[in-house]
Design a protein around this nucleic acid. Structure first.
Length: 607
DNA sequence: TAATCCTTTT
């Protein structure tokens, strides 16, 4: 036998064996990376990747990079990326997605810019990811620029890219642009529909959200999932539309997204029922959640707080602490709100002072605003003022400053503290937010203090400088009808005289029960022509107080207790109002609710 | 191998 042949043969077989073992190793490595659930597992596979010489293999390295991304270890992921000799489009996209899920979307955009300087072209995956980053930052400027690039590069018809654009425009408060993209799509899936519905519901266009939901159901393409349903419930909440809310609840139950299987839907329902004036339904839903997490607890605490059920709020707060659920900043807004609406002033101050030490939540503008409101309610305007002054410089955003001083302005107007009202107005005007509102409120403060001269000159000043306050409007749904009110004009409402009659009656009752200190809108209505705006606004609120809650165009719900700042026991006041009103106006329709639980209805049956 | 949607705030 030729010895040379033998050598050739054996080396041939060795090399095949070697190759096969390497092939298996690579497949094994990738499989390990795909299933890795912890950092130790990923780093150990990482070292095996290095040992077997696969680090320079882009495909393997991408898997390694993604394994770190899934573990939210963007630092490790970026290191892997930096060591890649030839990162491809998948590597770039994974790195961007990693920064988005790690909560650093601005760095995802930075990576996208670096990618454009490289020789690798972005594809539909890269665009969907970077638009998602713009969306979470609500960065419309960059978002628009990338949208243009998407069109230029021919990705404008991709389903996922378009869905992310709809979402981005929605989150940036450009609903009309979101709708243009949505309408331009040649095919849509449930996510595209949800993105558009969510754009509407997050931009105070609940009716459009419900309309689109109806269209989606009519097409029968797919059945709504929990993403879509929670957005729809949110829309019902912002409309204060109990009927639609119950119907959607029914759909959720029928489709198996029941409150004990889905935390997100449960949280939305708790919030919806509270905003629709049925906090006891909220509680029923909440108590059916097996292990409520932070958000359901927070929704329930906030909901109870709004109704003056302060004790319930604080009990729930204690309960979540006992269950080792860590409260966040919103939870404390609810807790402080509860103290404020139930007259637990000292408790509220204590929460403010200890929330950081005990629970690691740093108080910010919204918490100081709650406390200032709480102090103002009980007439401790001076203290509220000192608090606002001491934290003013620590508040970063003008929006936060406006919130705080706006609260102080109303409190000082209510208590006739013209001096503080003037300073608060100045601060409000400085912050460049709600300028017109500040002028109007300040002018009304002068009226209250009997200073007609200043009130008048302020109004003239507004006229001259062209500052105009948009007339406020609010609406309330009672049974099937929607009642719309424009500030400054009660007569435009068909039930005008009926409303005035009701308001007078409420006023009498309030005086009887010793709430005479509450400033009375009706008394002032004929006093000064130009101060009407806000005063009639108060009428609407008074009416809302009677029915529960009212809605505003911005999607906010006017709180029922707002006009009863002087009462310590708002819950008592609320009960009193409901006593008067329920007999005459409100007939709660609870039967339909049970129907949903048993029946096999579809939402279409109810619209 | 990489991408899109949800709930709590003043």
């Amino acid at each position: 036998m030729n010895p040379n042949l033998l050598i050739t043969l054996s080396s041939f077989s060795l090399s095949r064996q070697h190759q096969r073992s390497l092939f298996h190793t690579k497949a094994n490595l990738i499989q390990k990376l795909q299933t890795s659930k912890d950092l130790t597992s990923s780093t150990s596979t990482h070292s095996n990747v290095v040992k077997s010489g696969f680090l320079h293999d882009t495909f393997t390295s991408n898997h390694l990079l993604n394994s770190y991304v899934r573990l939210l270890r963007i630092d490790y992921a970026h290191k892997v990326f930096d060591e890649m000799p030839e990162p491809n489009v998948v590597s770039w996209t994974s790195l961007m997605a990693g920064y988005v899920s790690a909560g650093q979307p601005e760095l995802a955009i930075w990576v996208f810019q670096k990618m454009q300087e490289s020789s690798v072209f972005p594809n539909e995956f890269s665009f969907a990811t970077v638009i998602n980053a713009c969306s979470s930052l609500a960065n419309l400027k960059v978002g628009r620029r990338i949208h243009a690039l998407i069109e230029v590069m021919g990705f404008g018809s991709n389903l996922v890219v378009c869905s992310s654009l709809v979402d981005m425009y929605g989150k940036s408060n450009e609903v009309d642009e979101a709708r243009i993209v949505f309408d331009s799509m040649s095919s849509r899936n449930i996510i595209s529909w949800t993105s558009m519905i969510t754009s509407y519901s997050q931009n105070a266009q609940g009716h459009h959200a419900l309309q689109l939901f109806r269209e989606f159901n009519h097409l029968k393409l797919d059945s709504p999932n929990h993403f879509m349903l929670s957005s729809v419930i949110n829309a019902c909440a912002s409309l204060g539309s109990l009927g639609a809310g119950k119907a959607t609840h029914g759909v959720a139950i029928r489709l198996g997204h029941d409150t004990n299987t889905n935390d997100v839907i449960a949280s939305a329902l708790v919030d919806m029922y509270a905003k629709c004036g049925c906090v006891y339904y909220s509680e029923t839903v909440f108590r059916k959640i097996p292990n409520p997490s932070l958000i359901p607890y927070t929704s329930m605490i906030v909901g109870a707080a709004k109704y003056g059920l302060g004790t319930l709020s604080l009990q729930l707060f204690q309960e979540m602490i006992d269950r080792k659920i860590k409260p966040n900043d919103v939870t404390f807004v609810g807790v402080l709100h509860a103290c404020s609406h139930s007259g637990f002033v000292d408790k509220g101050l204590e929460f403010l002072n200890t929330m950081n030490k005990k629970h690691g939540v740093m108080p910010d503008a919204k918490h100081y605003t709650c406390v200032a409101d709480m102090l103002g309610r009980v007439g401790r305007v001076e203290e509220a003022y000192r608090l606002a002054k001491s934290v003013h410089d620590h508040i970063e955003l003008n929006e936060g400053k406006a919130l705080l001083w706006g609260t102080l302005l109303s409190a000082s107007r209510l208590h006739g503290r013209v001096d503080i009202a003037i300073e608060a107005s100045k601060k409000l005007i400085e912050s460049n937010q709600q300028v017109a509102g500040a002028y109007v409120t300040l002018s009304n403060t002068y009226v209250l203090a009997g200073d007609w001269e200043n009130a008048h000159s302020l109004r003239s000043e507004m006229k001259h400088s062209g500052i105009r306050k948009e007339p406020g409007c609010s609406w309330i749904e009672i049974k099937e009808s929607t009642y719309l009110f424009y500030a400054g004009d009660v007569s435009n409402c068909a039930q005008g005289s009926e409303i005035v009659r009701l308001l007078r009656k409420l006023e009498e009752k309030m005086k009887e029960r010793g709430y005479g200190g509450v400033s009375t809108g009706l008394v002032f209505i004929d006093v000064e022509e130009e101060a009407k705006e806000e005063i009639v606004g108060m009428h609407s609120e008074r009416l809302a107080l009677a029915f529960g809650l009212m809605n505003t165009p911005k999607g906010g719900i006017i709180r029922i207790m707002k006009n009863l700042r002087m009462c310590r026991d708002c819950h008592e006041a609320f009960k009193m109002i409901s006593d008067i009103v329920e007999r005459e106006f409100v007939v709660r329709d609870v039967n339909r609710f049970h129907h949903f639980k048993n029946g096999s209805c579809t939402c279409r049956d109810f619209w």
